[in-house]
């Protein structure tokens, strides 16, 4: 369902010519969205008719996250990496962190946030036998070999839990 809704919205945004939308465009969008939704059914058949991922409160939270802590973290990260490009001061390493996240959506969101923010890059993810997902993160400036969550990616873990789990 979420795939269908999103394909239709994005199609209409792309087809919009600035003066209103033809009925034909809406029909084409709905047909294309249905085709895409059916094509993606293979990956999670159980969620095909559910409204998973369409909760407006969570989307509101996601937008707050995107323009609040995420944007700030990204600006900091870019200044930091830019300084490192110029000065060449690095101390890289791969560290392991248990995020405590279980859902695939939350994991994806956190992994992408990590890659785009302060000197960190997600290399691999595996499941911890004790629960939660283990993140292997390439960190450009290792200050602690067994770091806590907060030291590496700040409050992103909490936000991912709040928005997507």
């Amino acid at each position: 369902m979420v795939i269908f809704v999103f394909s239709v919205i994005v199609y209409l945004l792309l087809a919009w010519s600035g003066n209103g939308i033809d009925m034909a465009e809406v029909i084409i969008g709905i047909v294309l969205g249905a085709i895409l939704a059916f094509a993606a059914k293979v990956w999670n058949p159980r969620k095909f008719f559910s409204f998973y991922g369409l909760n407006p409160a969570r989307w509101g939270m996601f937008i707050i996250y995107l323009f609040g802590p995420f944007l700030l973290g990204m600006i900091k990260a870019n200044l930091d990496v830019a300084m490192r490009v110029i000065t060449g001061k690095i101390r890289p390493g791969i560290v392991r962190i248990n995020s405590g996240l279980k859902g695939t959506l939350a994991t994806t969101m956190l992994a992408n946030s990590i890659t785009l923010t302060p000197g960190t890059l997600t290399v691999d993810i595996s499941e911890d036998p004790e629960g939660g997902n283990l993140f292997y993160i390439h960190w450009i400036n290792v200050t602690d070999e067994n770091p806590e969550e907060g030291l590496v990616y700040g409050t992103f873990g909490k936000w991912a839990r709040r928005v997507a789990e």
Partner: peptide, 12 residues
């Protein structure tokens, strides 16, 4: 990774 101080993934 070159010059890495720690590589937990390889260890695991």
């Amino acid at each position: 990774p070159k010059f890495a101080v720690v590589d937990r993934l390889a260890e695991d």
